[in-house]
Design a protein around this nucleic acid. Structure first.
Length: 434
DNA sequence: GACGATGATTATGA
DNA sequence: TCATAATCATCGTC
């Protein structure tokens, strides 16, 4: 037996009077029977009320208001009201039993977590995001991606702003609608039994509806962030040629350190700073350069000559100045009869001769950390002009005799290891052993 | 669009 | 961990 019929029966139990309802829904004919005169009176009352209730919606607003007032003042109202409340309470319990204790939506939780991690929701993370930072760290990049980072941050901030604006709008709309519904319910509670719990339940329903809208908003935001992120990461993969100046700096270093083109960390950092690229980009560049140079020495010959010639003068000047300086500082130094000019050998390690220039090593002299590289360059020029031939080919001006038989660069015997005691900490000389 | 140059990535080895 | 070698993907030039 359902609640409604039970209600009617309950009402019938208190002597429901039979009445046909005019102009509207017809109630089933009430049972007639065995009631007395007093019962007839109550039947009449209830019949009136039912009639009024059933016809109230068919009437104009004024008429309805008048009827509502009449109903409110009816002597049977409290009894009817309590019955309705009882029924509604039971109905409400059954509904609550089915709907209460909603477990948190895992999808919503995921969305929330992601938005939080990306810095879209939650407290402001300085406009940045963990993703951007992680991506930067992963690339080993420091400042190279600053432009992309700021771009990413700006876009993320935009998304964040839109998200919060929309969220605010939704919340406002939700609150307004809730208030409106609550007012309506309170208003209606004058004529029909609406318990505070029921209002609460209604509010819950509204909130659930709005939260589903919110979820859509969160989903869209997440998608936007994902797209932005993938674009950002793709952009990072994009190759951009280094500036001409940067390439020149790197090439100069490479060809002037051809005997050992392995820049130290410090050297890399300095090169990176000079070229406005990252240290890892410098490493990449040298890695590529080494392998490509080794693979096709002939192809790089011209380039090598070019850079060697370019730096030769500088190198010569620097070495000469250093020697002169050394002579000035130690006038009685033996074997200083070279007068700053090099007795260049056609074979053997030029560097060793440089070392014996003053009858001693560079220790104590201020020749500078770049001497070895300059020697490399000089050696190149010497080879070029002096027709050094190592049998690799007639056109090998700058012969790669730094490459060992295995195709690798000399390591332990490279000048770098020889000069290491004299090199200052700030030297850009390569000392990375292979 | 083809092609070479070049920066980045990845697998591998010492 | 770093260097090498191979490879990918994009850029720049013709």
């Amino acid at each position: 037996m359902d609640d409604q019929s039970r209600m009617l029966q309950t009402l019938a139990g208190v002597n429901l009077a039979g009445h046909s309802v005019q102009g509207g829904m017809a109630l089933p004919p009430p049972p007639h029977g065995h009631e007395g005169a007093d019962g007839d009176g109550r039947k009449q009352d209830i019949g009136d009320i039912l009639h009024q209730i059933m016809t109230i919606t068919d009437q104009s607003l004024d008429e309805a208001q008048a009827k509502k007032h009449a109903l409110n003042c009816h002597r049977m109202k409290p009894a009817l009201f309590s019955v309705l409340c009882e029924i509604k309470e039971k109905t409400g319990l059954s509904i609550r039993g089915a709907q209460e204790e909603d477990p948190p939506d895992p999808q919503l939780m995921r969305l929330d977590n992601m938005l939080l991690a990306e810095g879209v929701s939650g407290p402001e993370k300085g406009g940045g995001s963990a993703a951007a930072a992680a991506a930067a760290a992963a690339s080993g990049g420091s400042s190279d991606n600053s432009i992309e980072h700021s771009d990413y941050r700006a876009k993320l901030t935009q998304i964040r702003q839109i998200y919060h604006t929309e969220l605010e709008k939704y919340e406002q709309a939700c609150n307004e609608f809730t208030t409106h519904v609550m007012n309506l319910l309170r208003e209606q509670s004058r004529t029909r039994p609406i318990s505070p719990k029921e209002i609460e339940r209604m509010v819950g329903i509204i909130h659930r509806k709005f939260s589903s809208i919110q979820m859509q908003l969160k989903q869209s935001t997440c998608e936007a962030v994902m797209i932005l992120r993938s674009r950002f990461l793709d952009a990072r993969r994009k190759r951009r040629n280094f500036s001409k100046q940067a390439t020149e700096i790197l090439n100069e270093y490479f060809y002037s350190h051809l005997s050992n083109p392995y820049p130290s960390e410090e050297a890399k950092e300095e090169l990176a700073k000079k070229c406005s690229i990252t240290v890892s980009q410098v490493s990449n560049w040298f890695g590529n350069k080494r392998i490509r140079y080794k693979k096709n020495i002939g192809k790089f010959q011209e380039e090598a000559n070019l850079y060697a010639a370019k730096t030769a003068v500088t190198a010569a000047h620097a070495v000469a100045a250093a020697v002169q300086n050394n002579q000035t500082n130690s006038p009685t130094t033996p074997n200083s009869g070279s007068s700053g000019s090099f007795n260049l050998p056609n074979s053997g390690d030029m560097f060793m001769n440089m070392q014996s220039l003053n009858g001693d090593s560079y220790q104590g002299s201020q020749v500078g950390a770049n001497v070895q590289s300059q020697v490399d360059t000089l050696r190149h020029v010497i080879n070029q002009t002096g027709g050094y031939s190592d049998g690799l080919g007639g056109n090998s001006l700058y012969s790669p005799h730094n490459l060992n038989a295995n195709g690798g660069w000399q390591d332990a015997t490279t000048p770098s290891s020889v000069t290491s005691p004299t090199e200052g900490p700030g030297s850009v000389h390569s000392d990375t052993s292979n």
